[in-house]
Every structure is written in C-alpha cells, then in structure tokens.
Amino acid sequence: TYYTVKSGDTLNKIAAQYGVSVANLRSWNGISGDLIFVGQKLIVKKG
C-alpha cells in the first residue's frame, strides 16, 4: 500500500493510522529521521 503524505502528517500519525511502528515505516521507506514531505509517497505494509 502507498500513502501520500498530506500537510500536517507525521510519521507517528501515519504509523498509528495503519497500526504499524514508526521504525517499520522508516525501514520500508529508507528514512533515517522524522523528515517527510507533502506529496511524498510512503510504502505502508498493513500491521
């Protein structure tokens, strides 16, 4: 599943929405910090 980042989104918010961990979101998307951008597509695997 792909999720497109919207204004106001955070990794924590997206992780909670999908029932996954922030660590997994980072791993699946090659993100090291907490910086995400509006319009960015993130890979999300269902929890």
Score class of each variant (00 low, 15 high):
K46H: 15
N29F: 01
N24C: 07
Y3Q: 02
I14Y: 01
D9V: 02
G19T: 07
G47C: 09
G30S: 12
V20M: 06
S32Q: 14
I43Q: 09
D9S: 02
G33C: 05
K41F: 09
T10A: 05
A16G: 09
V22F: 04
D9E: 04
D34I: 06
V38Y: 06
S21V: 05
S7T: 12
S27W: 11
I36W: 03
I31T: 05
S32E: 12
F37N: 10
A16L: 14
N12V: 12
G19N: 14
G33H: 09
F37T: 11
K45R: 12
N29S: 03
G8N: 07
K13G: 14
A23N: 11
G47R: 09
G33D: 12
N29A: 02
S32M: 12
A16V: 11
Y3N: 01
L42A: 01
K45E: 12
L25R: 00
V22H: 04
L42V: 07
A16C: 07
I36V: 09
N24M: 13
G33Q: 09
N12D: 14
K6W: 03
T10E: 05
V44K: 02
G8F: 06
L35S: 13
K46F: 14
S27C: 13
Y3F: 04
W28P: 01
D9Q: 02
Y2Q: 08
I14R: 00
T10F: 04
Y3W: 04
V38I: 14
V20H: 03
F37Q: 09
I36D: 02
I36Q: 02
D9W: 01
G33N: 10
K13M: 12
D34R: 06
A15D: 01
S27P: 01
A15I: 02
V22R: 04
V22A: 10
V20I: 12
Y2V: 09
L11K: 00
V38A: 09
T4A: 07
K45I: 13
V38R: 06
G47V: 15
K41R: 12
S7H: 14
D9P: 00
V20R: 02
R26Y: 05
L42H: 00
G33T: 09
F37L: 10
G30K: 11
K46R: 13
L25Q: 00
S27A: 12
A15E: 02
A16H: 13
I31S: 03
K13W: 15
N12P: 13
D9T: 02
Q40R: 05
T10C: 04
T1L: 13
Q40G: 04
K6T: 10
K45V: 12
N29Y: 01
Q40M: 12
L42N: 00
D9H: 01
S27M: 15
V22C: 06
F37G: 06
Q40C: 05
K6V: 12
G19W: 06
T4Y: 12
S21T: 14
